Simulated scan of single mutants.
Amino acid sequence: MANEQTDPTTKHHDEGFPGQEQDQPATTGPMTPQPDHGEDSYVGHGLLEGRRALITGGDSGIGRAVAIAFAREGADVAIAHMPEEEQDAASTVSLVEAAGRRAVAFAGDVRDEAFATSIVEDTVAQLGGLDVVVLNAAYQKDRESLASLPTEEFDRVFRTNLYGLIWSARAAVPHLEAGASIIVTSSVQAFNPSPGLIDYAMTKAAQVAFVKALAGELGEKGIRVNAVAPGPVWTPLIPGTGWDEERLATFGQDAPLGRAGQPAELAGAYVYLASEAATYVSGAVLPVTGGKPL
């Protein structure tokens, strides 16, 4: 029986979102509606059988969707998360284990160099090696203006989105063998920055440069480095951004497909980049934006 063809404009929640706000780190529980991480829909085909993956920010949102997909494709999964995200992390671990794969979770903050490094060593120790590194942890906040942007706030953005990424990648490279893959979660903001996300957009653009430069360095070793650039996606980061009710009511509506994406719709891009189907793909930025151009 052929797979049913669906209309992408209406496949998921195709309206705006009700007003809601959380302090960061935000979590899944209070969100309305709940995001779809592929819990009931993702079907694996053994594309990552036997791989060992580390996903930063793997407790919720895109990170959880990737963890579910990787596990159902046959990979063991380690996730890193903030201590405040313990409940979300436990749910992700349960979903990975339900797929019959090993799951471990590490609580801490990637702004801490010791933690961002130790998660790599701990993943290797507990899973027996490391084949895929997904550098996904991120922080963003709505900014009224550059003039009012506090130093401690853009420092938090830079340290989460860039410093943590570099520390974890630097620790991971010596453990990676030919065929391994590093995947960074960048953003459409790297190419079309919003004024209210100026510092976040800067880090996402820097991540693109990181991916292209590191792909050049590691290519001869057979290690691929790529990025996924999501558009507007309904994750805990959104109610944690500080947008008002009007902004949430229109979130994602300006995409050509007319709606925000769901985390489940990103998972396949990460599976592809980590799999044998992408053996000649490195230094690439794969957009999953609902049609928003890079």
Rank of each mutant, 00 (worst) to 15 (best):
P8L: 12
K11H: 08
D14V: 01
F17K: 04
A26F: 02
P33W: 11
P35M: 14
Y42R: 10
Y42G: 05
H45I: 12
L54T: 00
L54E: 01
T56P: 02
D59F: 04
D59I: 09
R64Q: 12
A67I: 05
A67P: 01
I68F: 02
A69H: 07
A69M: 10
A71W: 07
G74D: 10
A75S: 14
P83D: 12
E84T: 07
E85A: 15
D88T: 11
V93W: 03
S94R: 13
A103W: 02
V104S: 04
V104R: 12
G108T: 03
V110S: 01
A114T: 14
A114Y: 06
I119H: 04
D122Y: 03
T123Q: 08
V124L: 12
G128H: 02
V132G: 01
V133Q: 02
L135N: 12
N136H: 09
N136C: 10
Y139R: 05
K141Q: 12
S145N: 07
L146D: 00
E152T: 08
V157M: 09
L162A: 04
L162D: 00
L162F: 02
Y163C: 03
G164F: 06
L165H: 04
H175Y: 15
A178H: 02
A178M: 05
A180F: 02
S181A: 14
I183F: 06
P195W: 10
L197W: 12
D199L: 01
D199S: 15
F210Q: 00
V211D: 00
K212I: 06
L214D: 01
E217I: 11
R224F: 12
P239V: 05
G242A: 08
E245R: 15
E246S: 15
R247C: 05
R247H: 11
L248R: 06
Q253R: 15
L257V: 13
G258W: 09
Q262D: 07
Q262I: 11
A264H: 07
A264N: 04
L266W: 11
G268F: 08
Y270M: 13
V271L: 09
A274T: 04
S282P: 00
G283R: 09
V288T: 11
V288K: 10
T289N: 09
K292T: 09
L294G: 06
L294E: 03
